[in-house]
Design a protein around this nucleic acid. Structure first.
Length: 262
DNA sequence: ATGGTGGTTTAACCA
């Protein structure tokens, strides 16, 4: 079978219901993983999604903040929902398709402004969250799995618009990149997007604070698709739908896609 | 060093 998966930080699924519907209609991924739904689960507008064939959802909700959900045309059953670092936040959901593939959907803490856990508690929480992810994947090696989400870290020099200028900016500091690398290694995760598109600048997020986001192009690749080695080779057609950042009342993130032939 | 823009919820928090 072949299926296409997308991941998108939607920044309020209720405010942007129409954008989700538009993406489902025009791109029709089999599975769409959302982050920052900013909604309790029972207030996510499922009717429209269901009418387009997305009859299955697993997720974790929370009022005002965070929130992750997986919308699927294919049957999916919940298999886990972790609260790493015990933050009490809705930042993870995992579901399994009938073909045996497990999909982890993460919203890693953004980490605040200052990259110093001594003066900024949120930065420490981000590092602790990544360490907990690492330890969990080390304890039980994932197989036949895909990990997606807003990981809030742009690891490579060509994942940001200016490597030198961002070395002290949260999302691209060496300690964050190191933590993310350890998490990736612990699960033997393959960065599917970069395996597919190894060269060149690649961004999935552009700040709202830059009105000329398109021409300035000061982006970062914060949104990722990883897979375990047993299925990573089945992935192809990776892409980032940059045009979605230019839609009316957009999310500040663009959707990232990959297709798997299994 | 600062402020720039958004969402949720209505003052303050988060990104």
């Amino acid at each position: 079978m072949t299926f296409t998966l997308a991941t998108w930080n939607i920044n309020s699924v209720r405010l942007r219901e129409d954008l989700v519907l538009h993406l489902l209609q025009t791109e029709a991924p089999d599975v769409l993983c959302l982050q920052e739904c900013k909604s309790p689960l029972d207030k996510i507008p499922l009717e429209g999604f269901s009418a387009l064939g997305y009859r299955y959802m697993v997720g974790r909700g929370q009022k005002s903040y965070n929130g992750v959900a997986i919308l699927s045309k294919l049957p999916i059953r919940e298999v886990a929902a972790y609260d790493y670092a015990s933050l009490g936040h809705a930042r993870h959901i995992a579901g399994q398709l009938d073909n045996g593939v497990t999909i982890h959907n993460f919203y890693v803490p953004a980490g605040g402004d200052k990259p110093d856990r001594e003066v900024n508690e949120k930065f420490g929480q981000k590092l602790d969250y990544l360490t907990a992810m690492r330890d969990a994947f080390h304890a039980e090696a994932p197989e036949t799995s895909i990990l997606v989400g807003d990981l809030n870290i742009a690891p490579r020099e060509d994942d940001v618009w200016n490597h030198k200028q961002l070395l002290k900016v949260v999302s691209h500091t060496p300690i964050e990149v190191e933590h993310l690398g350890e998490t990736q290694d612990a699960g033997r995760w393959v960065d599917v997007t970069r395996a597919d598109i190894p060269e060149g600048q690649l961004y999935s997020w552009w700040s709202y604070r830059s009105p000329d986001w398109d021409s300035a192009d000061k982006g970062r690749r914060l949104d990722h698709i990883w897979a375990t080695p047993d299925i990573a080779g089945a992935a192809h057609s990776s892409r980032i739908l940059r045009s979605a950042r230019g839609w009316e009342k957009p999310s500040d993130h663009a959707p990232v896609f990959a297709t798997f032939d299994l």
